[in-house]
């Protein structure tokens, strides 16, 4: 880890205008939870787990936030042409990647965790929790790490990491995983949902992920390490003057 790099990245990622927009973004699930409570429906547990957290936050908001931060942390340096100033310094590549990852992870997890905590608390106000709040809080923090590592690798691999990441999230995870159950082993969304299941203690009717908690944790760890290694390897082979 490198303190200067972390500070610089934090300043890049959390520019004033973008932070305001992201806070508005985090307000959307909260607003939806409020509307849901106002309408007063039955089965708030099931809604909070399967609709609010699994579909809305983990299915849409977490990957989008990770896509914004994960691809910008290192990708914007390549886009602006400033990557060369970092890569030509005697800083080991893994330190660069880990510092950038740390900031983008914290930024993603911060925004999404706030949304999860507030929205779930509102949705389950006066209802039994059964670990839903804690489980999904843990899951989004872990999922943010896996997504950020994946998108960071994409951002050193291609200049269109944002689009490739969108295709991955919405075609691969959104459509293909639903059609071919075997693909669940290659879906960060399923890892995240599986991790939530480790703490969430509700019947399968309420929330039923496709991966067991152990598989999910092992696969998430493997995915993080592999994508990080690939990102570091790509940077080691990077040559000055090469267009990213």
């Amino acid at each position: 880890m490198n303190g200067v790099l972390i500070r610089l990245t934090a300043r890049q990622l959390l520019g004033q205008k973008r932070t305001v927009l992201l806070l508005l973004f985090a307000l959307v699930p909260v607003l939806i939870a409020v509307l849901y409570r106002v309408a007063g429906n039955d089965e708030p547990q099931r809604w909070a787990a399967s609709a609010l957290n699994a579909r809305l936050i983990i299915g849409t908001f977490l990957p989008l936030a990770a896509l914004v931060f994960g691809t910008a942390a290192l990708g914007s340096e390549f886009e602006d042409g400033t990557a060369v100033y970092i890569l030509s310094k005697p800083i080991p590549r893994q330190v660069i990647v880990l510092s950038k990852l740390l900031v983008s992870w914290l930024a993603t997890a911060g925004v999404v965790l706030a949304a999860t905590l507030i929205a779930t608390s509102i949705a389950l106000w006066g209802e039994p929790q059964d670990g839903i709040l804690a489980g999904f809080a843990l899951a989004v923090v872990a999922g943010a790490l896996v997504y950020c590592a994946l998108f960071m690798w994409l951002s050193v691999l291609t200049s269109r990491a944002l689009i490739v990441g969108l295709l991955y999230v919405f075609i691969w995870e959104g459509v293909i995983t639903r059609l071919f159950a075997g693909v669940r082993f290659l879906s960060v969304r399923q890892y995240t949902l599986g991790i939530a299941d480790a703490v969430v203690d509700v019947p399968a009717r309420v929330f039923n992920p496709r991966l067991g908690e152990m598989e999910a944790m092992v696969l998430a760890a493997v995915a993080t390490v592999v994508t990080l290694y690939l990102a570091v390897r790509r940077l080691r082979r990077w040559e000055i003057g090469e267009a990213s």
Binding site: V28, L31, L35, N41, T60, L64, A72, L162, I163
Partner: peptide
């Protein structure tokens, strides 16, 4: 990057909002 995110946000942020407002 900003333009892509903004377009995606239009499609994806309005979608669950509409779903929840209509169904719930």
């Amino acid at each position: 990057a900003y333009a892509t995110i903004a377009v995606v946000a239009w499609f994806l942020v309005t979608w669950p909002i509409s779903g929840i407002l209509v169904t719930e």
